[in-house]
Simulated assay, not measured.
Amino acid sequence: MTSPDYILTIRCRDTIGIVAAVSTALAASQAFIAESSHFGDPETRLFFMRTVFRPTGEVVRTLEDFRKALAPVARRFGMELALYAADSRTRVLLAVSKHGHCLNHLLHQWHSGELPLDVVGVVSNHEDMRRLVEWYGLPYHYLPMSDGKDRQESRFREAIASSGAELTVLARYMQVLSDEMCRHLEGRCINIHHSFLPSFKGAKPYHQAYARGVKVVGATAHYVTSDLDEGPIIEQETHRVSHAFDADAFVRNGKDMENVVLSRAVRWHAEHRVMLNGSRTVVFQ
């Protein structure tokens, strides 16, 4: 039987000897390092590392065994250290309003086994996507804004908790989350913005871009914060447009980019490739 792979992520103050200490601890535990990436940020003086490894040798070592083996290194360098089974699947709750292209793309990839996650349900403030979601056999949480924002977000948090969702994805969920909700979901909520941030924030960004005569449109996936459309960026994509395009053509071109960008961001988060670095991210691709 092939030994399972594990994923190790590390965040700490940058200094000499971190990679050597981690590698030595893993080697002493008879672990084979299959992949490793690291980055030291000269501005924040923080160090980030992602390593994929597997146990070898006659003794079968568990995730907990490796946590114990790495504990002295973590204490020595003051690390934020996390270990995951590589085959574990992130539980994801999707949120949508009336535009279903991002939702449909994610559901198709999940159903086809192309994303390392388990979709546990869909939240919406409209009924439009119910038929699609229920076709996939998923629970559909209809949470209308007519109940009031506080009550609606309370029920949203209940849906997250009851489903065991580890990540919430706003797949064109056209509601601004309250500061309280943003704090509750900090670091575990991804939004797709149909624009190349930081330009053209808020409503109808493609129409804003068209009015300004831009030559490039884009899409941005980012973590949600209380600052509207200003959270740490995970992934972006752009597409060149012509003076002959009208605002509707901008929107049509943008939808494909939104699908791809959001899918990448969700995948990288689920594979523990994204690490927060203040208002930015480190993404190990």
Rank of each mutant, 00 (worst) to 15 (best):
212 R>K: 10
74 A>K: 08
96 V>C: 14
15 T>M: 11
48 F>L: 05
54 R>M: 07
170 L>Q: 04
144 P>M: 05
185 L>I: 06
281 T>C: 10
143 L>P: 04
199 S>Y: 07
85 A>P: 06
244 A>V: 14
220 T>V: 07
11 R>D: 09
234 I>Q: 00
7 I>D: 00
270 A>I: 12
54 R>C: 13
273 R>Q: 13
176 V>H: 08
223 Y>F: 15
256 D>H: 15
274 V>Q: 03
279 S>L: 04
120 V>E: 05
217 V>C: 11
88 S>N: 12
54 R>K: 10
273 R>K: 15
281 T>P: 00
85 A>Q: 14
110 W>F: 12
225 T>P: 09
152 Q>S: 07
110 W>M: 03
98 K>S: 13
161 A>V: 12
21 A>G: 11
188 R>H: 12
10 I>Q: 01
253 N>C: 14
191 N>S: 04
38 H>V: 11
49 M>G: 02
246 D>P: 02
120 V>P: 09
206 Y>A: 09
163 S>M: 09
278 G>L: 13
241 V>S: 08
18 I>S: 01
71 A>M: 02
16 I>N: 12
88 S>A: 15
137 G>I: 06
199 S>A: 13
277 N>Y: 11
180 E>W: 07
86 A>Q: 13
242 S>F: 12
268 W>M: 05
33 I>D: 05
79 M>Y: 09
155 R>I: 00
261 V>N: 05
158 E>A: 14
193 H>C: 08
75 R>E: 15
243 H>S: 15
200 F>H: 01
124 S>E: 02
62 T>F: 02
67 R>F: 02
171 A>H: 03
239 H>Y: 08
156 F>Y: 09
17 G>K: 02
242 S>V: 10
265 A>N: 00
128 D>H: 11
247 A>F: 08
54 R>L: 13
68 K>P: 00
65 D>H: 14
143 L>T: 01
277 N>G: 04
271 E>C: 08
222 H>N: 04
264 R>H: 13
196 F>E: 06
78 G>A: 10
55 P>H: 03
241 V>Q: 06
203 A>K: 06
217 V>I: 15
62 T>R: 07
224 V>T: 09
261 V>F: 08
48 F>G: 07
175 Q>A: 13
5 D>Y: 10
10 I>T: 13
51 T>C: 15
56 T>P: 02
277 N>C: 10
175 Q>L: 04
154 S>W: 10
17 G>Y: 00
78 G>W: 12
253 N>S: 14
3 S>Y: 12
48 F>Y: 15
30 Q>C: 13
66 F>E: 01
70 L>W: 03
2 T>H: 13
67 R>L: 07
25 A>G: 00
198 P>C: 05
132 L>M: 15
189 C>M: 13
18 I>V: 06
223 Y>V: 08
263 S>P: 00
102 C>I: 01
221 A>L: 03
